[in-house]
Simulated scan of single mutants.
Amino acid sequence: MIDGFERLMSRQIEWAHRYDGYARLARTPEHLAGILEPARQEYRRTRRVPEWCRVDLLRGWAFYLTRADRHGGGYGLMEGGPMVDEWRAVLERIVSHEEVAANDMPPRDRASVAGGGRICLNRPHLPQAVVSAFFPSRDSERLTDLAPSVVYRGRLRCIDRYASVERFLKEPA
């Protein structure tokens, strides 16, 4: 039986592969590693993803980690694996990034999204941030499956059909 960690990690790895870091940032694994090296060095030194990383670099970093895991035998992103902390830090930084778009959001753990009270996954005071709020209810599992959806002005709406967050926010409830 597949446990929750494996299921979530599988969904996140699938999500990471949708961003082709070789095509978007560098042509080869070696060039991608070179582009990511300053950020990874700072992460290894501070255990924090640098604030200067933009969303494309973070998506490329997640892509790189999945490729490195696969070519390293597939054990780095297993529960307790040596790459899991870095993986989580990168994904958490993507979720909290002020310029993240709905389609850049990684799959999230249901417990962290629907677990205890209303959880906001962004910084709502920033105008370009994606408004993602979930609340626990009888349907909370179904709501998290709809992500990226938002509860805004008392109504659940899917943000994917809007051209921009600004347009979404302007539409009357």
Rank of each mutant, 00 (worst) to 15 (best):
W87R: 01
A114V: 03
S164L: 04
Y75W: 09
E166P: 00
R123S: 14
L77C: 09
P50S: 13
A163H: 07
D139K: 10
A163L: 12
A111I: 05
S132N: 05
D160F: 06
L126Y: 14
R18Q: 14
S137W: 02
I119M: 09
G116W: 04
I94H: 00
F134C: 06
G72F: 08
V84P: 02
G76F: 02
E30L: 12
A62D: 05
V100Y: 00
R153V: 09
A68H: 06
R161H: 12
L57N: 00
A163V: 10
L77Y: 03
S112I: 09
P107S: 07
S96I: 09
P124V: 04
D20H: 08
L143P: 00
D104K: 01
A114N: 03
R153W: 09
H125Q: 15
R11F: 04
G73Y: 06
G4Q: 13
R93D: 04
D139P: 02
V49A: 02
F63S: 03
G73C: 11
P106G: 04
P50M: 10
A62I: 08
D139W: 05
E92W: 00
R67S: 06
A89F: 02
P172F: 13
L25Y: 03
G80E: 11
D69Y: 01
R18A: 14
R47P: 02
R118M: 11
C53H: 01
C120P: 01
P38S: 11
V49L: 04
E51G: 10
P107G: 04
F5K: 04
G72N: 10
S137I: 04
H17Q: 14
T144M: 15
C53D: 02
R27W: 08
A26S: 12
E51L: 14
S96Y: 04
V84T: 14
R110C: 08
W61K: 03
R108H: 04
D56G: 03
Q41W: 08
R11D: 12
Y19W: 10
L169Q: 05
P124Q: 04
E6M: 07
L156H: 06
A101G: 09
V130W: 01
I94F: 02
C120W: 04
G21F: 03
P50L: 09
L126C: 14
G73W: 05
R123P: 00
Q41D: 15
L156V: 13
R157T: 12
S140Q: 12
L121R: 01
D3C: 06
D20R: 05
Y19K: 03
L146R: 07
L58F: 04
L25M: 15
I119R: 10
L65Y: 01
L32V: 11
Q12W: 00
E51D: 14
L143D: 14
A111R: 06
R110P: 07
R157M: 08
